[in-house]
Design a protein around this nucleic acid. Structure first.
Lengths: 350, 350
DNA sequence: TTGAAAGCGTTACCAG
DNA sequence: CTGGTAACGCTTTCAA
């Protein structure tokens, strides 16, 4: 735990001044420092394993090349971590580092986390949520370039750029996939109203039906919840004791966990997936959708892309590459991606 | 984006010197600064919403009250995030802040992340993994007090304290639960050798059988993997086309996802859980074990406790509360916790 | 009781 | 081409 070498140590060893060290090591040696001194400086730096103290640098430059990522519960929850992964990819590629703080859905901690981050001179802030949701911009976030990922400012006059998935199109394309397979009676387990994603996906479902000229039966749409038991319960209601002609031939779910519950119910009832019933998921949850039996056809949430897009916007604003940052806040919608696996198939002949 | 107030601003507003501000705001005003000035200072600080610049503070004090949490993939994966949650609980309670960096299993990024953190004067480091595993201590981690959570240094002479779950006892108690329900023929889907947790849980399974005087059939133990499809496949092998007397009456799984696959297979085969077959999970994965149908009896991994214990050890070392930090590295084992739900029941009479 | 000054490690400016 | 000096914001010591 011995102290690290400082610029002064390097200067001494090379027999020059601190300023010379600074210039050379920052690539502005030519034209300012004698070639020979430059070599000695570089040599000394190498031998002493010198790297500038980031703290001193931040204090001096008033910027840190650190982006603070704040999340409501991405770290502790099983969901949406790849948004942060994608954001970090971009940040590292552009010479920034990210640090993550999770406030575990305690709004009171948001402000204090931001305060902490701001006190450490982060150059920018990104707020990431688990699941699409409106948020109140935490106090302090406007003091520095910021962006919202997977969430948005619900105010009439939004203050921050946000990046979200295109849920309506996602819902529509999922439905279209089923429609194209010949299904006409498609039930929808739509999650619950507590998430703004639910109504959007329902909207997509309705749009697809409308485009196909098929009228939607409202009793085919269930707002049951998001978990396995909700999927199970919903499917039982739709299938148990119902004659084959009365049954929906496909059940579209607002997430993969619901689809697990539906598949479980189908198995209980002796229905084969997809021969007797097609099941469609949403999210493409890692190691759920791809490992289910049968593997789930699903609408993949573009998590990494969301993170990437959000970070790109943020860094552009910070570095002034585009004027997007200081301009009017905008919305970026990233398309979802249909992943066809085994749980959907042609409509059964009956 | 206007500049934050500094101690100088406060001093001016209160009509005193910077030093006075510093003294008062750090609680050493009494005996040094006139009561009346103190009030004015505090008032001014409040009005200006002053908080000291953490960067300057770190530079000055050579410590930051920040703990760096490094993880192989906790942030991006769906697992084990609560270790970080628990660690953060303790850190905040003791006046520290945690920042998380995820290297997404890229060992090359470990060292650079640590370098970054060290350059920012973190007072301590914690390494957290998804799933129990041996790790090579990343370079630089020994330069500052550090601790390992959910992983351990595999060297003959371990250098760091680590906190891990007690997997052998977990495996034993899970098995005992089944034994107590009368099961004598308990199959085990044991995950795979790529995780050190697997053999430990198997060991517990064997220990419980030995203590009960029941011999273990090695053909009842499958190292199939960790995912839903592996659970499904394993269960089919054990159950499909096998006469009731030849079937195991319980299947114990090394994680909850395997148990989902087993339950799915049972449903396909018309077997009721738990009446015909008891299914036991492991991990108590949020919103899987508790929402399965039937809900899963499982052995809960003590994630938050691991995080808490690790952070406590680390902060004790940093603050010199105990001499544990500088002493010989030790191992802390945290017990798992049996959670009885609906998927296990008495052995069926046949 | 107060204020001035030094120092933490940098970089940028400006005389020499 | 070079090196001294100021400044970033803070705490602490020392002298008034």
């Amino acid at each position: 735990m011995n102290r690290k070498a400082t610029a002064l140590d390097v200067a001494k060893k090379a027999g020059v001044s601190r300023s010379a060290v600074s210039l050379v090591l920052n690539g502005r040696g030519d034209g300012n420092v004698a070639k020979e001194s430059q070599d000695r400086i570089r040599q000394a730096a190498l031998e002493l394993n010198y790297s500038p103290n980031a703290i001193a640098l931040s204090l001096r430059n008033q910027r840190s090349r650190v982006i603070g990522i704040l999340s409501d519960e991405v770290v502790v929850s099983p969901f949406d971590g790849n948004i942060i992964g994608g954001a970090d990819d971009v940040a590292r590629a552009r010479g920034f580092v990210t640090v993550v703080m999770d406030t575990e859905r305690d709004a009171a901690r948001d402000a204090s986390a931001i305060e902490t981050l701001l006190d450490r001179q982060v150059d920018g802030l990104m707020y990431v949520t688990v699941g699409l949701k409106p948020i109140e911009i935490p106090h302090g976030m406007l003091r520095v370039p910021s962006v919202l990922a997977n969430c948005y400012d619900d105010q009439p006059q939004p203050q921050l750029h946000h990046v979200i998935p295109d849920e309506v199109t996602g819902g529509r394309e999922a439905t279209e996939h089923l429609l194209e397979l010949g299904h006409q009676d498609i039930a929808l387990l739509a999650g619950s109203e507590d998430s703004p994603a639910a109504p959007l996906r329902v909207q997509g479902y309705r749009d697809a039906h409308a485009a196909a000229g098929i009228s939607v039966r409202n009793d085919r749409i269930f707002m049951a919840g998001w978990d396995i038991d909700a999927g199970f319960g919903g499917a039982m209601k739709l299938l148990d004791g119902v004659s084959p002609v009365e049954r929906p031939t496909a059940i579209m779910c607002a997430n993969d966990r619901l689809a697990v519950g539906v598949t479980l119910a189908a198995a209980r009832l002796g229905l084969r997936v997809p021969e007797d019933l097609s099941v469609m998921g949403y999210d493409d949850e890692t190691r759920i959708a791809d490992t289910m039996v049968p593997s789930l056809t699903t609408m993949a949430l573009p998590l990494r892309e969301i993170g990437r897009a959000a970070m790109t916007t943020l860094l552009d604003a910070i570095e002034g590459t585009g004027e997007a940052g200081s301009g009017t806040p905008v919305e970026t919608m990233v398309p979802c991606r249909l992943v066809v696996r085994e749980s959907t198939g042609p409509v059964p002949t009956r």
